[in-house]
Nucleic acid binder design. Structure first.
Lengths: 365, 365
DNA sequence: CCTCAGATTTGGATCAATCCAAAAACGAGG
DNA sequence: CCTCGTTTTTGGATTGATCCAAATCTGAGG
């Protein structure tokens, strides 16, 4: 009847300090270490013991303390994710893809929005270091110091770059072959008889912009179209597409097709054509990049090079998991293959001397 | 010349174990405690000491260990954020708003996407508890157990509900007055002469859906339009809007206006009208909710009730900060006032006997 | 009954910080 | 030079888990 030290749990005690391994151990009549092993699903503990301990865990309403565990085990099951524009639907889809993989792997992620500012990005990275994240998914902000990646390596913080990349290979990277994407668009348009194809591109200097421009240049050259080859640089917004296409259509001879850096620009370009009383796909072909949901539903439906944001997110997260498990493994680059979805916004060329031929490429909804 | 214990730092040592308070203390010739005080910006330390310690911190490349600090101080500077559809642009904007406040407050956030599954949500919440987050921002998944909120309170985990809410007040909440938003839309349409106004709504049973329906019912009643009052329930997607409006326009007499649960539905509805050869804003008025970026750029430009996702995110984060600072303070509900942006998709009613009058309300770009 | 290998269990040290009561240093006044 | 009251600084305990080497338990074989 006397108070025995083996029965420490009183109803109010749980309020005083949270239940710990020690409490479970006392309740189940085993040691702290055994409880720890049960929690981590070790095969060392006997089945009867395991059951007893699990019952105590239930009974006392124990909550695992990951912070304490991480302190000793130096593994946090935590990942940092930096994007530069979370308000952009593309990143929403990408983050959803990341989340799906992390959920499976029992990881959680810190998310931050750099707003394309290297300073904000830097601050977040420092914070992530303090949090001792196991790894990092980084869409580098425009103007990121190329030395950053090697600095992260010095900190031995696994980092997977996503969509854009800076610094020298080898590094881990997940993205899309933007170069190929633009080439597909040019090839398709040329097949449809177009020659005066303009590229409406971005003015930033990161890898994703460069790759698109390279793709455009090379495809045009391959088709012997160096003479009509033309890039307009500027912001990659709806309005920029809207304005640029209207300026272009005043010219003579005017372009018969435009390829846009992303779908927002392309949708803007279509509106610009309509504003001039022209019909996209008839008077001027328009092809976008990303294939956001809106593309298939616009009028006319926008042809677009799909870049699969959800899949990129999944691949990036998978890569991070792999690098965390094997920090010294060889770096990997996962480059997804984009796919042109042909819809109504790019028809055969009717403006040029070239006899209009029927397009027979794949047509998607 | 003999190795003195006061100079412990050798170049390779930093690789062996990470630099700790102890190392800084030794380097600066003070105690662990003093270094800790400096790190936390305490006013107790003398200026000369502070400078010396800070120099040592720089010299040794020390990185604060938040995990260890949190273990003792039981404060993590960490917030959990659960949304149900991160791929939706609305949430992208909201998360950006949250992020901006947290960045200022030196907090970081764990983000998870419940995909509107209470199970996924539950699992994330448990994980957040294990991480000992200081608080929670929760957009409850459809079907969330109303008891959840009080359970969180039992765990003494501050929780701010966002956009939707479950359980019994008082609780912390940040959202928009959806009821008022719909009422504004109805009032405007009635002013323009419309009477047969249909509401295209959601089929879910959470607070945000209910509020919209209530707003519609009451506004219609206030205008004596009980007899023509009509709600269509279904998913809240582009396609649902597209389909529903086409079915409605087959009827006789047909509605002269539709108000939609969100902008995606409204954009779909406009496409549906165009598919039938009708002109939105002329043959049938369309008003959406949210005022996403796309709304102003569609053709015709969509009238929409702005719900300010970025601002909601900011308010929610601010509320969380307040509740963490004062856990027993009275709960607060921040309800933002929505604002109807009138554009081309809702003109005067031309179909009815009522003499069409000129709309003189505010017109926005 | 003893031995020994294999299966379980354990306690003490450790991770890197904060808390707190007490000690030390300091400066002014007697 | 000695108090006395601030201002600074300090060491030991504490937080809640994991690691690891050693202790204990088991059961089969001799």
């Amino acid at each position: 009847m006397a108070e025995s030290p083996e029965t420490p749990s009183s109803p109010r005690e749980s309020a005083r300090h949270s239940v710990t391994l020690q409490d479970i151990a006392a309740h189940a009549g085993v040691s702290r270490s055994t409880v720890s092993l049960v929690l981590r699903g070790s095969s060392l503990v006997a089945d009867t013991t395991r059951t007893r301990v699990q019952a105590s865990i239930q009974a006392l309403g124990y909550v695992y303390n990951r912070g304490a565990a991480a302190l000793r085990a130096s593994r946090t099951f935590t990942l940092g994710v930096v994007v530069y524009d979370i308000a952009n639907p593309f990143f929403g889809a990408m983050v959803a893809g990341i989340d799906s993989v992390l959920h499976r792997e029992n990881y959680v992620s810190f998310l931050a929005n750099s707003e394309d500012s290297p300073q904000r990005q830097q601050r977040f990275l420092e914070r992530m270091r303090e949090q001792r994240v196991d790894g990092l998914l980084l869409c580098p902000a425009e103007g990121t110091d190329p030395a950053l990646v090697s600095r992260l390596a010095d900190w031995s913080l696994p980092c997977v770059q996503v969509l854009r990349h800076v610094g020298e290979p080898p590094f881990d990277y997940a993205g899309t072959d933007f170069e190929l994407g633009v080439r597909q668009a040019v090839d398709h348009l040329v097949t449809c008889g177009h020659r005066r194809i303009v590229f409406l591109g971005g003015d930033a200097e990161h890898s994703a912009t460069q790759a698109r421009h390279r793709g455009y240049h090379e495809a045009m050259r391959a088709h012997g179209l160096d003479d009509v080859h033309r890039v307009i640089r500027g912001p990659v917004t709806r309005r920029a597409g809207f304005d640029a296409v209207q300026r272009l259509m005043q010219e003579s001879p005017r372009p018969t097709a435009v390829i846009c850096h992303n779908d927002l620009m392309a949708l803007g370009a279509m509106l610009g054509l309509q504003r001039l009383g022209l019909t996209p796909g008839q008077d001027c072909a328009v092809i976008g990049t990303d294939d956001i949901e809106e593309a298939a539903l616009s009028l006319p439906a926008l042809s677009s090079v799909a870049t699969h944001p959800y899949a990129i997110g999944e691949e990036a997260a998978r890569l991070a998991m792999r690098r965390i498990a094997d920090p010294d493994g060889t770096r990997e680059q996962v480059i997804l293959t984009p796919r042109l979805h042909v819809r109504d916004s790019c028809g055969p060329c009717t403006a040029d001397a070239t006899p209009p031929r029927r397009c027979t490429d794949v047509v998607d909804i």
